[in-house]
Design a protein around this nucleic acid. Structure first.
Lengths: 338, 338
DNA sequence: TGTTTGATTGGTAACGTTTGCAAATTTTTA
DNA sequence: TAAAAATTTGCAAACGTTACCAATCAAACA
């Protein structure tokens, strides 16, 4: 593909490349008339700045990399949407990556993004292995952990913005307790996810304080999907089931529970109450109307972009910002008072 | 952010930059020993190729731009996912853009992507105004229209890959007819969307051929959202309603219909049958189980990336590939035999 | 032994910008 | 009117690569 360069414009206008450059970047030291003439020719010839060349000099690309585990998970889709909107307000473009979790060689992805010289990276879906990743790449590029991170664990030397998962589970436990539930199950724990570990801890701790019984069902599949929830809930409902409520670690799992209940004739919330975590769009759907904990993707995205921008524009590395946003209970129709 | 350059490595290794470059690109004309030594130093110093510089020379970025109207629409999310996966197999990275429809100044977006020197653009969500856009930008960058495009209209001078919307609606009409429906409504037509115009035409044409009555409800909101469907269906159900089936132009609209039906005590499929278009993930949900037409996002994405790659790697412009993929009926539980 | 080959290496000019500094031109000042 | 100042321009070097061509050197040939 052939592109018009500054040199071409310069030749056409009979001036030097420097002058053209000045016209384009409206520098003060240029004759308004020449400027107009040059710009006219630019428009006419369809000139477009080669950002590669510019970035090479300025060592700023105005692009941030965003790593999502799975864009098909609606929470991450919402996050991506808001990140893009917000980044644009800062004059930044978004490069979305690694949207599949399975083949995710994060090292390769980071190497690529750094090679592209992105100005910063927003990393979502932190897992225990992320720590080493940070140690390795943080010197080369500003990184902000988004939406999934250990809450306030000082050992994490990294900026981060996320919903307080612990507090979210706390809300859920308190809510169920307030409704009179005494014996509940926590469904879908994933040992490889910090978010899930925190959710689990928050729920178990709070339930304990309130004198409730909690039994935990682990999710060995390692994915928050409807099918995973379906399988887990099937096993649960097929065995004798004494608990009165289920707290699913994610809405997607909760949807699976809903489906299993439907299949096996368990009625929700009459026989068993259900509360999720995420508040994905589809939780609000007719016939679903899932009570859940909102992770406020918009707030997380906005705050995350802001923190990253500050990090990019500050030279002093080694000082990290951590933000823990308050989650919110969204009450719908899958829980009932006992 | 300070980065290690080839020059640094050259100094450290006591060789020339050319030699380092050769080591990195494993060129044949280099002593295996020096190569190893150089590569060792690269690893040790954390050297990462500056792709900006490389692209500047090769005039290839190995990045494609993908423009989505709204990533929160699950169909587009699925599309994005598969595009990324497939592009990676070709050694390409994806730059996702403009995922908000509202503020979408497509001209600015195109200018930006071209300035970034992306190797090609996948444009989804074509609307009538797209034509002028193509005329303007196709000389500067290879473009493939994806998922939404006029079917086989020869006036469109552009490569394209999409589901045959016309045929999809045809399927829907035939299916409803086979079930014995005679009087049906087409809901959610958007005049600004080619996809919707085709869907509408396919449905009306086929219904006509089969001797069915069809009345069309337009969607003035211009968005395929649940709320839009909700509003439209509310009006529909509040007036006297004689039709036996609704064909919603998108699943999202259909979900709105479902919600309205729920609110107003209309039971689906007992009182009225409902069929959607898209087969988004959530159509398969428990308690939704929407019968619909699949747009096969994976197939569309794969084919689209392939066509774009061919376009990028062929010099002769002016020859376009058009692919029209066959849609598929997904039968679930929102339609009943009369 | 002199010449040819082959294997390694280095120098240098691109790629399309921006930028510091000097040159040329115009305007202002004394 | 000459000198000083201000305005407007251009040259050339950088940014970090790659690619062409020449240079070096040891080994192999005649």
């Amino acid at each position: 593909m052939k592109h018009v360069t500054i040199k071409d414009i310069a030749r056409l206008a009979g001036v030097s490349v420097t002058t053209v450059s000045r016209a384009l970047n409206d520098a003060p030291e240029i004759n308004p008339e020449t400027k107009e003439r040059v710009l006219d020719i630019c428009r006419q010839e369809g000139y477009r700045t080669n950002l590669l060349a510019r970035s090479l000099i300025s060592s700023r690309t105005h692009v941030i990399g965003v790593i999502l585990p799975d864009i098909a998970e609606p929470f991450y889709a919402a996050l991506a949407l808001h990140i893009e909107t917000c980044a644009r307000q800062f004059g930044y473009q978004v490069m979305l990556c690694g949207i599949r979790s399975e083949d995710g060689d994060l090292n390769a992805l980071f190497d690529f993004l750094i090679s592209q010289r992105v100005d910063g990276i927003l990393l979502t879906g932190a897992v225990p292995g992320t720590r080493e990743l940070l140690r390795r790449y943080q010197a080369a590029v500003p990184i902000v952990l988004l939406a999934n991170c250990m809450s306030m664990d000082t050992a994490w030397e990294c900026s981060s913005v996320c919903i307080d998962n612990y507090a979210g589970s706390r809300l859920a436990a308190q809510y169920l307790h307030g409704l009179g539930h005494q014996d509940v199950v926590y469904l879908g724990l994933r040992r490889d996810s910090f978010a899930h570990l925190l959710r689990h801890k928050g729920f178990v701790d709070t339930a304990g304080e309130l004198g409730m019984q909690v039994s935990t069902v682990e999710n060995p599949t390692g994915r928050s999907s409807i099918v995973a929830g379906l399988q887990l809930a099937r096993e649960l409902f097929l065995a004798p089931f004494r608990q009165t409520a289920i707290f699913a670690a994610s809405d997607l799992l909760a949807l699976g529970v809903l489906q299993a209940a439907d299949e096996l004739g368990v009625s929700i919330p009459e026989q068993v109450s259900l509360i999720g975590f995420d508040n994905i769009d589809y939780a609000a759907l007719p016939k679903i109307r899932l009570t859940t904990i909102s992770r406020r993707p918009e707030a997380v995205a906005r705050s995350g972009v802001q923190v990253l921008m500050e990090l990019i524009n500050s030279e002093d590395r080694g000082e990290y910002t951590r933000k823990l946003l308050a989650p919110a209970l969204v009450e719908r129709q899958t829980c009932r008072r006992l």
